[in-house]
Amino acid sequence: MMSMFRTLNQEGGDHQIHCSRERSRTAWKIIQEYLMPFVEKEKYHISKRCRLHPDNDIYRDQEQHKFHTDINEWQCGFCKKSFYEEKHLDQHFDNRHSNLLNLSESQCIADVCGALHCDHEMNSGSKKSKCNPAAAAKNKHLCESLADSCFPVTEGPAASRLHEFFLHQFCDAHSCTGNRKPFSRGRRKKTNVFYIFVSILLVILLLLYYLYIYLYQRGMKRETQVLKRVSQASRKKKPS
Rank of each mutant, 00 (worst) to 15 (best):
S199I: 09
G186N: 07
N179Y: 12
F197N: 08
T177L: 12
N192Y: 00
K181H: 14
I204G: 03
L202Y: 09
K189C: 12
L201Y: 09
L205D: 03
F183V: 10
K189L: 13
S184I: 09
T177Q: 09
V193N: 08
N192L: 05
K189D: 14
L206D: 05
K181Q: 15
L202I: 14
V203R: 07
S184V: 06
G178Q: 01
N179R: 08
I196V: 14
G178T: 05
K181D: 14
I200P: 03
I204V: 13
I204Y: 00
V198E: 03
F197C: 10
R185Y: 11
N179S: 08
N192W: 00
R185P: 06
V203S: 08
I196H: 06
P182Y: 06
L202V: 12
S184L: 07
V203A: 03
I204W: 05
K189H: 13
L206F: 14
N179Q: 13
S199R: 15
R188K: 11
P182D: 08
I196S: 01
K189E: 06
G186Q: 01
R188F: 07
L202R: 10
V198H: 05
K181S: 13
T191N: 01
R180T: 15
R187E: 13
L205P: 01
R187S: 14
S184W: 02
L202E: 11
K189F: 13
V203K: 04
